[in-house]
Design a protein around this nucleic acid. Structure first.
Lengths: 204, 204
DNA sequence: ATCTTTATTAACCAAATGGTTAAACCAAAT
DNA sequence: ATTTGGTTTAACCATTTGGTTAATAAAGAT
């Protein structure tokens, strides 16, 4: 399916594992299926990645380090909150439309194994909300924003941007849309969501 | 763990299956583990529910019919949009704090098998958004609400209410809170979220 | 009391699954 | 040409897993 002769075997395995793990999860994935997807022998998986668990962790870390910088854009950028919200929503939705399995995969697996995020945060100082919080506090005190706590605002921003992709089957069901219609609704959200948030928090 | 002598064997199985399936998912759950949790022989699972798949479906349907009425409160109630938002957020968050595994379970399994929602919608006419849409349209035309589409507003309401529970490990990570702290943040949201939405959509 | 149906168990089974091994292959170094 | 090192494969293995079966126990019906 996703073979490219340019890549090394080790890379092909990672790509195949990504495809299978992201759509079926750790428990649903089969080593044989990953081997088939990569077009190689199952023993190669263990040759390069030792165990299923380690292969999975490689995939997860790779997925997480794809997502984390996106989130950091809103946490560690210097422009105004309003500006960041605008940029983030548009960028993030484009980003996820390119990686549709990503948010669900990460959320699902973090729930399966909550300790996992600790391992990852050890290495990288990803996801530090402190700067964002003090920025919100400042803009609230200046009267630019209505009173709101930084954590709550950040949760709201994530929720409005990420949730629709995680709940895609549910949304498709009650809107009675197919994949194309769903994508259109998401495209609309690139501007709708930032307007929604801005109206909610901006002091006029 | 969760045995109660009042229930019939069949009910005990369903309770046990609920516990295991909701925390581990279909693929991660083991029939033996469910039997142990119910305190009975594994053969009994098949005696009452035939296969793992059917047992799972019983659990899923039961979970879904617990959640669906909550969602319908906001779709098929007669009060104003603003009022419904206020009631829904508060009620829904209380509801989920009592059933913490529920949203994640449903979302995870719907993603694993998107056709599943079709089976469910055949029987019950759950999740019909039409009334809500026309109500939003009406209030927008009257100048009560700022221009917004019904679907988008409904997605936003769901997102703000459901997402935090689905993304709990992520939220705990960047807020550096434990379970208690997380719960407090959720309690705050009972009012915060409806204020946030109201400010976003209400025309002043 | 006896028959009949339903409930429950221990033992068993075949298939699937993650992982191993020993041999073959192949490119680069000697 | 031969050795050496990493790479790849087919066959194999032990364990797990969903599911079955045959025998037993309990409960209702006659």
């Amino acid at each position: 399916m996703a073979k490219s002769k340019d890549n090394t075997t080790e890379e092909q395995i990672l790509i195949a594992a990504k495809n299978i793990f992201q759509s079926k999860g750790m428990d649903g994935a089969r080593m044989q299926e990953i081997a088939d997807e990569a077009g190689i022998n199952k023993a190669m998986l263990h040759y390069y990645y030792k165990t299923k668990q380690l292969l999975f962790e490689a995939v997860f870390k790779s997925a997480f380090s794809l997502l984390a910088p996106e989130l950091n854009k809103i946490l560690n950028d210097d422009s105004s909150i309003e500006n960041k919200v605008k940029n983030f929503t548009s960028n993030y939705i484009s980003f996820i439309l390119k990686h549709p399995y990503l948010p669900n995969f990460i959320i699902q697996e973090l729930n399966r194994n909550p300790d996992f995020i600790l391992k990852i945060q050890e290495n990288t100082t990803l996801l530090n909300i402190e700067k964002f919080k003090s920025q919100v506090e400042l803009e609230v005190s200046k009267g630019i924003l209505k009173p709101i706590k930084g954590e709550q605002l950040f949760i709201n921003i994530l929720a409005l941007n990420i949730f629709p992709f995680v709940a895609k089957p549910l949304i498709k069901a009650f809107t009675k849309e197919d994949d194309k219609g769903f994508k259109q609704i998401m495209e609309q959200r690139k501007t709708e969501v930032s307007e929604f948030i801005t109206q909610a928090i901006k002091q006029y």
